[in-house]
């Protein structure tokens, strides 16, 4: 469903060259959630951008069942136009993702309802608080019912309650979409406490490499944090 094959990518050249991705491969099928932990500059964002097709890797390839249409992206930026209302934004992105015209309105209402944003639908984006804007961004990412969700530090800017809500939402999204069957989630963060419970698979990234990549098994946050310290911080 989502596979990466020998990805390698570097920025710059000469002595200033930074290898942001180095020999990363994996293969995820529906229902799997990969959590990638790594310090700042490890190459997590680069990896997600490569998976989303924003950056063409210098070496290696990515395969997504269903192509671009199947991908939902939640990054540092909301991709929302400040002077359009939340609904107008959703309708625009729905059109770009090829949602049939008749389905766009109901779909937008459905997603907004699910995120508790129904009352805010006709507010322009510039008038939303940061947390609400983040929710609107998530709504935008879900508008076309993607089967692969790429999340780059989705918890930043959310308060504890909102973060817990988002975790619950992601848990739901993971197991079933409208189309039935599970989704693939890839979640990148530098905070081991965030999102460990969601993961079926865990990877630690350091200087572009996966220094650890294994199923989570029954490990809880404390064990993962311990493993992370050994593999990344001390290693």
């Amino acid at each position: 469903m989502l596979s990466a094959e020998g990805l390698r990518h570097a920025f710059g050249e000469g002595r200033g060259q930074v290898v942001a991705l180095d020999g990363v491969s994996f293969d995820l099928t529906s229902g799997q959630t990969l959590a990638i932990f790594g310090p700042n500059g490890a190459g997590k964002t680069t990896l997600l951008k490569v998976l989303a097709g924003l950056i063409h890797p210098q070496v290696g390839s990515v395969h997504v069942t269903g192509g671009r249409r199947a991908i939902g992206w939640i990054g540092h930026q909301s991709h929302l136009y400040e002077h359009l209302t939340v609904r107008e934004n959703l309708l625009f992105w729905a059109a770009l993702y090829g949602v049939p015209a008749a389905r766009r309105g109901p779909r937008a209402a459905e997603v907004l309802g699910r995120l508790g944003m129904a009352r805010r639908a006709d507010q322009p984006v510039w008038s939303l608080s940061r947390g609400l804007a983040q929710r609107a961004a998530i709504a935008k990412a879900l508008i076309h019912d993607p089967s692969v969700l790429l999340l780059d530090e989705p918890f930043t800017g959310l308060d504890l309650a909102a973060a817990a809500e988002l975790r619950a939402l992601l848990g739901e999204l993971r197991v079933g979409g409208a189309a039935g069957g599970g989704r693939v989630l890839v979640l990148a963060t530098h905070n081991v406490d965030e999102g460990v419970e969601l993961a079926t698979d865990v990877a630690f990234q350091r200087r572009g490499r996966f220094v650890h990549f294994a199923p989570r098994g029954g490990r809880g946050p404390a064990e993962i944090a311990e493993a992370y310290r050994r593999a990344v911080v001390d290693g």
């Binding site: 249409r69 991908i71 990054g75 991709h79 770009l96």
Partner: peptide, 17 residues
Amino acid sequence: QLELENQALEGLLVSPL
């Protein structure tokens, strides 16, 4: 310029457009 607000351009580029 207007696509730079909230990096909407990035959104356009990941979309099937």
